[in-house]
Write a protein that binds this DNA or RNA. Structure first.
Lengths: 246, 246
DNA sequence: CGTTATCATATGTCAGACGTTTAATTGTCT
DNA sequence: AGACAATTAAACGTCTGACATATGATAACG
């Protein structure tokens, strides 16, 4: 892994890649301490700042953690699901906002994925997740709730639904899809009537999950998907009309 | 965004976070040029190396790109789906390998997600993706194929299946789940008989997608999921037995 | 034996300098 | 005047050397 010809591009990027590859290949087990910055600099024949830039690149991806002091250094980090959630969410959010992904496309993806874990959630739901779902529904009923708070509660409800499948890989994947949608959803102004409809569907979903009725949960999710899409279309149409008038 | 009290932790991490937040908030539009390193150093009251470490952190996440020369500098990068694929895949791969996620859990997640887009793929498939699927099936029939090559072709087949849904958000999400499974799948030794069965199911899936028969595709995917799980269980049981003997 | 002081190590940060890349500017020639 | 070539300046990439700081290990002391 000492390969580093000074031919093409940034040394720090090359070094980061070399170490990253070593980690992925399993040559550097979790919690293994990397050589000190000075040693790495010597090994790669570069200066310490260059090595540090490489290490910061890895730290940004949670691949390593650093510790100061006598027994400090850079250690291969065990990538935890919670850490990955965060990265996944910001990446997804930026993808949607920077690529002008339509609400329709994002919605479709989100509900397709959610429906994928509905059967599992129905099968394995525990009192814990069920309670969270009920609590969020209760919160959504509060009359004074702002649209943002309503959306946040919506996200919490759906995360509980996903987590009920008790599959961390699914939860991780879905976290991005669900949370990244929130900024798009925040554009929607929820009228009292649309909130009522959404809450009714949420209740139906919670009931189906409670009854371990996968198909029923799926059906209600499908309806919720349709309704959300319709709301979004409405907002966009109204916005286009307003622009036309102006 | 100039907030930077020298209270808690690494300055470079704080600076990176400040800039990242500005990008996410939309204060820094795509392709906007950041101030030069010297200017940033001045603004944050730190040295240039510290600023550089912060910028490298952002570069590692593809949030910025840098350009040398007279009109060079750091620019806010438009995060492309292809860039996100790579990050998603390495993150997923490390998550699975470092957290001892069972094959069962990973398999379940992968096939649940894949089945989520089967109906969409059936509906929207084009000749392009169908051809890829058929080509990969043909490759899988080659007798001399190594297990690794067979797995790689398997991944290509499933990616084509996912891409056929023509929803970039879904493709992005699924890329991680499908590709991250490959190292786990590589543990499996595919006998001639198991390959035959997998190829038969692949063919059935391709046929269903061709005929725009979503339910049928879903059913065959479910069978493939079951069969893959059974193969994995077999490998693990055999390995446990070998260990017991030894 | 326990507590405290010292020390060594490694990261975090800084300052200044030089090389290289690249585009814009200038200057000259036709 | 216009086109091509040389100069220049801005910015990143890298290096050297140094100091500050955190932290565990060790040694000294009561």
């Amino acid at each position: 892994m000492k390969i580093d010809p000074t031919k093409p591009a940034d040394l720090s990027a090359q070094i980061a890649k070399a170490i990253k590859d070593a980690i992925i290949a399993g040559d550097l087990p979790v919690d293994e301490r990397l050589p000190s910055e000075a040693e790495l600099a010597d090994q790669f024949n570069v200066s310490r700042p260059t090595v540090r830039e490489a290490l910061k690149r890895l730290a940004a991806q949670s691949l390593i953690r650093t510790q100061r002091g006598a027994t400090g250094g850079a250690f291969v980090n065990r990538l935890r699901f919670e850490d990955a959630y965060g990265q996944q969410i910001t990446t997804s959010t930026l993808l949607l906002s920077m690529n002008a992904v339509s609400v329709a496309t994002a919605c479709e993806a989100r509900y397709a994925l959610e429906r994928a874990c509905a059967p599992l959630s129905a099968q394995r739901r525990t009192a814990d997740h069920l309670a969270t779902m009920r609590a969020e529904i209760h919160r959504q009923r509060q009359p004074g709730l702002t649209d943002e708070a309503f959306c946040a509660s919506d996200v919490a409800f759906h995360r509980a639904l996903v987590d009920a499948a008790h599959n961390p890989v699914l939860s991780y994947q879905l976290a991005g899809a669900v949370e990244a949608m929130q900024p798009l959803m925040n554009m929607i102004t929820f009228t009292a009537r649309s909130r009522e409809r959404i809450i009714a569907l949420h209740t139906a979903i919670a009931d189906a999950i409670d009854a371990q009725d996968g198909p029923k949960a799926d059906e209600n999710l499908a309806q919720l998907a349709d309704y959300t899409q319709a709301l979004a279309r409405d907002v966009i149409a109204r916005r286009a009309a307003a622009q036309g008038v102006k």
